[in-house]
Simulated assay, not measured.
Amino acid sequence: MTAADPAAAANLAFVESPVQLLNVLEWSHHTGRRDLTVVVLSPTDPMSRGQLRRMAGIARDEGVAVRWQEARTGRGSLPRTLRDLAPLLRAAERVIVGDPFSRYVQLLLTLFGPRALTVVDDGTATMEFTAQLARGERLVRWHRPGGLRAPREIALAPVTALARRRLAPAGRRSVEVFTALPVEAPPGTTVTPNRFAWTRARFGPPRLTRGADLVGTSLVETGVVDPDRYAQAVAALAAAHGATRYFAHRRESVEKLHRIAVTTGLEIVRPELPLELIARRGPIGRTLLSFPSTVVHTLPPALAGTGITITVCAIAPEWLRATASPRARGFLAGVTESARSAHGLSLTGA
């Protein structure tokens, strides 16, 4: 089996983001399973593609076979991708996915039901996924606005419904959730904690700076938080805590980041790898400030023993857009409170 042309493996992973690939490596390290092929269903945005290219290089250095699949190049890419991946899917004993809400992943699962399934983190959506699976609900991202369903969503409803059944344990199929997030196992499902042991062994410990760093979020881009409120909050946090750098999320817009740089004087850093690895490599501030997102659960285990303090900034209700999902307020509050409870993080306001 070579990295350039991976052969069929017992464990087959589909990833669409750098964080998913990081967590697949953590799963492989935790389980000791080396018969692994990772298929990158390449996204279209340049930042994600760049981070994925670098993560793919790290994975290959770890002896993992990686296949880069241009799955979104236009007309004909979907049937070509399904045709190319069919042999790997049929041979795999276990399929590992990072985003159970992905239409691409759902379609693959409907065509080829896995014998065993593992879901790794791609974000806080893991919390919503396990809750919806336990309640038997249809799979809907937490930030998706309520109301009438879009025509595309209605057309894909049969695919989503079948995928949901494939994502649940049934008969001889086992389902595992490998996560750093505090979730309760749905009936018949195994939850395995992700302690970021591979990350801690592979990188660091980091060199610490005296100041504070602020971690950005894509809540504006996903339509949850008002952009003006967000910019004001970033400015207030930077002033109150003496932050000097802003680590941008890969999906944050250039226009928003330019505004933050101009109005706050913060140095904008666009990481080349997931923040968990960047923070382990350093240099990094002794204090990290973050809005409620995945990193308030992943950074504590990744940075354990480094002396770094992580502080979470709650999202005030008035920051939310009028069009935000009705679930957004409660979900974000839950992320904040669970981070405080699970990791003892301090809370600050802006």
Results as ranks from 00 to 15, higher is better:
residue 159 V to F: 03
residue 161 A to D: 15
residue 162 L to Q: 11
residue 164 R to L: 00
residue 164 R to A: 02
residue 164 R to H: 00
residue 165 R to V: 03
residue 165 R to A: 08
residue 166 R to N: 12
residue 166 R to V: 11
residue 169 P to F: 02
residue 170 A to G: 09
residue 170 A to K: 15
residue 171 G to E: 07
residue 171 G to W: 14
residue 171 G to A: 14
residue 173 R to D: 08
residue 174 S to F: 15
residue 174 S to N: 15
residue 177 V to C: 11
residue 179 T to D: 06
residue 179 T to G: 10
residue 181 L to H: 04
residue 183 V to W: 11
residue 183 V to M: 11
residue 185 A to D: 14
residue 187 P to T: 15
residue 188 G to C: 01
residue 188 G to Q: 02
residue 189 T to L: 11
residue 189 T to S: 14
residue 190 T to E: 11
residue 191 V to R: 06
residue 191 V to W: 05
residue 192 T to V: 13
residue 192 T to F: 11
residue 194 N to H: 07
residue 198 W to P: 07
residue 198 W to F: 10
residue 200 R to C: 03
residue 201 A to M: 10
residue 201 A to C: 12
residue 202 R to M: 12
residue 204 G to R: 03
residue 204 G to T: 04
residue 204 G to Y: 06
residue 205 P to S: 02
residue 206 P to G: 13
residue 207 R to T: 12
residue 208 L to I: 09
residue 209 T to P: 11
residue 209 T to A: 08
residue 210 R to A: 10
residue 212 A to Y: 01
residue 213 D to T: 07
residue 213 D to M: 09
residue 213 D to S: 13
residue 214 L to Q: 01
residue 214 L to N: 05
residue 216 G to I: 04
residue 217 T to I: 08
residue 217 T to D: 00
residue 219 L to H: 02
residue 220 V to W: 05
residue 221 E to V: 03
residue 221 E to Y: 01
residue 221 E to A: 04
residue 222 T to F: 02
residue 225 V to F: 03
residue 226 D to A: 04
residue 228 D to I: 11
residue 229 R to V: 14
residue 230 Y to F: 09
residue 230 Y to D: 00
residue 231 A to I: 14
residue 231 A to L: 14
residue 232 Q to K: 10
residue 233 A to S: 09
residue 234 V to L: 07
residue 235 A to C: 01
residue 235 A to W: 01
residue 235 A to D: 12
residue 238 A to T: 03
residue 238 A to H: 00
residue 239 A to I: 06
residue 240 A to L: 00
residue 244 T to G: 15
residue 245 R to I: 09
residue 246 Y to K: 00
residue 247 F to L: 14
residue 249 H to I: 05
residue 251 R to V: 15
residue 251 R to L: 15
residue 252 E to Y: 01
residue 253 S to T: 07
residue 253 S to N: 02
residue 254 V to R: 12
residue 254 V to K: 13
residue 254 V to T: 11
residue 257 L to P: 00
residue 258 H to K: 08
residue 258 H to A: 12
residue 259 R to W: 05
residue 259 R to S: 07
residue 259 R to V: 11
residue 259 R to G: 04
residue 260 I to L: 04
residue 260 I to A: 05
residue 261 A to R: 10
residue 262 V to K: 08
residue 262 V to Q: 14
residue 263 T to Q: 10
residue 264 T to H: 04
residue 264 T to I: 04
residue 264 T to W: 09
residue 265 G to V: 04
residue 267 E to W: 12
residue 268 I to Q: 06
residue 268 I to H: 06
residue 268 I to R: 07
residue 269 V to I: 01
residue 269 V to S: 08
residue 270 R to P: 09
